[in-house]
């Protein structure tokens, strides 16, 4: 058991920054919110348009996920990677716009194997934006990014929340935008 007696609520448009030392259970908490893990006891509830989703898998269909791993295939170009996920989520429209937004506009035809860790993270951010999910769960979104990249993260989160979305981010450093803090011991 990593944590117990944890209770919190996040409203639409709010950012929650989950902090704590390594091993405090930040990633486990995010995986629990995403529905991958079931809590040993207690519930996770997501309220959308008046309906409450408690089932992990139903909740997962509302989640935009940015994990430790970037899910960038070495054999696929940036554009192929993003187009695949856009098709999967039935909305291929804003592909170029999303690439522009995260600073990848000129790298579209580069295969994943030539990207740096920071560039892969930007691909993951563009995908997060493209998928258009209301609940963002971000695991160390700032890792591997340069200052400009970190500003991109802050801007994306701000735009997402301004549109009524929720962002929960596990992080070691300040996100660069106003956020409520939840500290895991």
């Amino acid at each position: 058991m990593v944590f117990r007696d944890l209770s919190f609520a996040v409203e639409a448009g709010a950012v929650l920054s989950v902090e704590g030392p390594n091993g405090a259970g930040k990633t486990s908490l995010l995986r629990m919110l995403a529905g991958f893990l079931a809590p040993a006891s207690g519930t996770v509830r997501l309220r959308i348009d008046g309906t409450a989703l408690e089932d992990g898998e139903e909740r997962g269909k509302q989640v935009g996920w940015l994990g430790h791993h970037d899910a960038v295939k070495p054999q696929m170009t940036v554009r192929e990677t993003l187009a695949f996920f856009a098709m999967l989520h039935r909305g291929a429209g804003a592909l170029e716009g999303a690439m522009e937004q995260v600073g990848l506009a000129r790298l579209g035809d580069l295969p994943g194997q030539y990207l740096s860790a920071g560039q892969k993270k930007r691909v993951a951010l563009a995908r997060l934006w493209l998928c258009g999910r209301p609940l963002w769960l971000l695991d160390e979104p700032l890792a591997a990014l340069d200052p400009a990249g970190k500003r991109v993260v802050a801007d994306l989160i701000a735009a997402h929340c301004a549109a009524g979305g929720i962002a929960v981010a596990a992080t070691h450093e300040p996100l660069g935008i106003e956020a409520r803090r939840l500290v895991l011991a």
């Binding site: 991958f36 997962g60 996920w65 994990g67 430790h68 791993h69 960038v72 295939k73 996920f85 999967l88």
Partner: peptide, 14 residues
């Protein structure tokens, strides 16, 4: 897909 995180995203996909 499990190792590079793609499987998580596939599981959360529609």
């Amino acid at each position: 897909d499990f190792e590079d995180g793609s499987l998580d995203l596939l599981a959360l996909s529609p």
